[in-house]
């Protein structure tokens, strides 16, 4: 038996035509009604996220209090808050944050410049394109923290070693994404740029960078994520071998002293900075550019 079936041939049933006058729109009532205030507030993502956050904090506080968890293992939310206030009171925390951020931003900025130089060279000369792709394929998977022992040997225990490995963690991710992004700019958009007489640097600024911005931004985000992780990791290793002075060191120092409340305070600050950079900076840039232009959902 074949799986393909034959169907009986039928003709459409003949029917008379009908014509009607639609009733006036005004009699229908609500055709379009704005949602109520509660419905709209509940539709705002940040409100929903904050609600969940408050819920977590309440569960955390209730659990640590009711189950009598020793603060040595897991301090309660209020304990952590007190610890944060303590840490800020004698300016230790502020100094540590500024140490971490200064090194981090220096490394990130130098990394971005290096990546820009590399990508520009690669866009002009083919040899540099080959050098760039080979180098990124090799060095991008190399965790820059693995270079720390050598960097400390070459450059000593100072900020320079930190900046060196930070640059390494940023440059490859950014260069790789920017280069791939530029390569992926559509020929139509390139031709439009040439058509209107753009050449050289102007062409790069007015056509290539905006067209590849989605990829360039995602490269910068990954570069930031790597740098942030490398920075904290490096401070932990530094802390373990010598005197360092940042947030990672704060965590390490206090965990050695079994001062878990301060460890939580340090983690809290790290999350706060991470969230701020991710959402207040990168998300804002994205919303103003690639999302507004419809290049990314």
């Amino acid at each position: 038996m074949s799986a393909v079936r034959e169907r009986p041939r039928t003709d459409p049933v003949p029917r008379p035509e009908i014509e009607r006058t639609p009733i006036d729109v005004r009699h229908i009532g609500q055709i379009e009604r704005p949602l109520s205030g509660i419905e709209r507030v509940w539709n705002v993502q940040i409100v929903r996220n904050l609600t969940v956050l408050v819920m977590f904090v309440v569960i955390w506080e209730a659990y640590t209090r009711i189950a009598d968890i020793p603060p040595l293992l897991f301090p309660s939310f209020t304990d952590t808050c007190v610890a944060i206030v303590d840490a800020f009171r004698d300016h230790r925390m502020l100094a540590k944050i500024s140490f971490t951020l200064t090194s981090l931003l220096t490394g990130y900025a130098v990394g971005l410049v290096a990546a820009a130089v590399l990508v520009s060279a690669a866009s002009i000369w083919r040899v540099w394109a080959d050098i760039l792709t080979t180098a990124t394929a090799m060095f991008n998977p190399l965790p820059s923290i693995a270079l720390l022992p050598l960097a400390m040997l070459w450059f000593g225990l100072g900020t320079f070693s930190l900046v060196f490995i930070l640059v390494h963690s940023v440059v490859w991710a950014v260069a790789l994404n920017a280069y791939v992004g530029f390569q992926g700019v559509s020929p139509t958009q390139r031709m439009i740029g040439h058509n209107y007489g753009l050449r050289g640097v102007m062409f790069a600024i007015k056509i290539l960078i905006p067209a590849a911005l989605a990829t360039v931004l995602s490269g910068m985000k990954i570069g930031w994520a790597f740098a942030w992780r490398t920075m904290i990791g490096a401070e932990l290793v530094f802390g373990a071998t010598a005197r360092g002075g940042g947030l990672g060191w704060h965590i390490f120092e206090n965990s050695e002293l079994l001062n878990i409340r301060q460890v939580f305070a340090g983690l809290f600050m790290i999350i706060l900075i991470g969230v701020l950079v991710e959402y207040a900076i990168f998300r804002t840039v994205e919303l103003r550019t690639v999302r507004r232009w419809g290049m990314q959902r």
């Binding site: 996220n49 904290i232 990791g233 932990l236 969230v275």
Partner: peptide, 13 residues
Amino acid sequence: SMLNPLPAIALLP
């Protein structure tokens, strides 16, 4: 969105 930006290594201690 809260925990993704927290470097995992910071939890090691």
